[in-house]
């Protein structure tokens, strides 16, 4: 059974639907990749190389930008992806704080 799910055709990340165990090997177009730590349901794996500053696409829309080059198959999370939205949200907070 496939362990990864592509939610939208435009996505460059896949979602884990079955736990990938520590030390487990996965194949991407014949290329083998061994995972050092377990990656659980709902986590993201790069479906392709994403350059630093590139948009990470899930649900067909950008959910943030890569903070470093992300190789295909790599776990995508807080260590290599940041929100594009945070500054706007912070401004809103300041607006609310001012009243």
């Amino acid at each position: 059974m496939e362990k990864l799910l592509r939610i939208h055709r435009d996505d460059n990340v896949l979602v884990v639907k079955r736990l990938i165990g520590a030390g487990e090997m996965m194949r991407f177009d014949g290329e083998e990749l061994v995972y050092e730590y377990p990656i659980g349901l709902g986590h993201k794996i790069a479906a392709e190389f994403i350059p630093k500053g590139g948009k990470v696409i899930k649900f067909g829309i950008p959910i943030g930008s890569a903070t470093e080059d992300i190789p295909r198959g790599a776990h995508v999370h807080l260590h290599n992806l940041k929100s594009d939205y945070l500054p706007t949200f912070t401004l809103d907070h300041e607006f609310i704080g001012k009243k």
Binding site: K44, I63, G64, L81, S83, D84, H93
Partner: peptide
Amino acid sequence: RYYSIMGHGSFAPGNAEGGLTTLEEKSM
């Protein structure tokens, strides 16, 4: 603005539970 005044906490960014990384991802 409304939810912030209500003290609703679900918009705090950085909720990594279940593999979610960013706010826009969670909202999406």
